[in-house]
Amino acid sequence: MYDFAYHRPKSVADAIGLLKSKPEARAMSGGMTLIPTLKQRLARPSDVVDLGGVKELAGIKVEGNNVVVGGMTRHADVASSAEVKAAIPALAYLAGHIGDPQVRNRGTMGGSVANNDPAADYPGAVLALNATVSTNTRKIAADDFFKGLFETALGEGELITGISFPKAEKAAYVKFPNPASRYAMVGVFVAKTASGVRVAVTGAGATVFRVKAMEEALAKNFSSAAIKDIKIPADGLNSDIHGSAEYRAHLVGVMARRAVDAANK
């Protein structure tokens, strides 16, 4: 990797201050994407601002009907959280199936959501559960957050401080892993919350997206039979040596049905 200056601030304010004063600085949460990128010399930040020392960003708490997960909360902590398991077991399950134990003990929810890798798992949960992303300056609804390939609504000097997930009546996440990387090739998060039924798909497209036709069908009848004839168009879906767009479109249907069945269990 290229040389850079390393900072480990203790507060959000200090972190923002550093990021704003150094135009070529990069924030690092768990570093599970940034470090490999640096090692491959694919990024050349002047400064790396490690958020690992910002205690206020980590932790899980229940606020009314919502579970609020701090931006620096590690996947392993979400997976093992009694609060998350009680309120949204599907979210704990998802966190417990990201990457491998090393990644789960380093990677964070805020880092994953801010990076918005098309094959990441968390964006599916954020969108399907109609979560709200809090930053140091504002609150952003899930529908407004994910903008495109590795692109979000976050602005310069804006950090995810936490994500608030409404409790779900029913929810499940089923993914088809890429055989090599085991990232989600297609992951479908199905949730029935106070605001209705949502179906969010990760891995298949440039960014996470909702399948409105399935949501409408499931709102009427929350069973896999209700969506069995819904075909997903392959246009615009990802295609690579592991999965053509057509295959991914087909898998969206299969994973969605399996997720609904799992949510009904």
Partner: peptide, 23 residues
């Protein structure tokens, strides 16, 4: 699982890391 895949036009190794070469 395993396949060394080259791009037939450019000769770039597509399965050039464990992200794409399935061990």
């Amino acid at each position: 699982f395993e396949a060394a895949v080259y791009d037939n036009s450019t000769g770039q190794l597509i399965s050039g890391s464990f992200m794409d070469y399935t061990m």
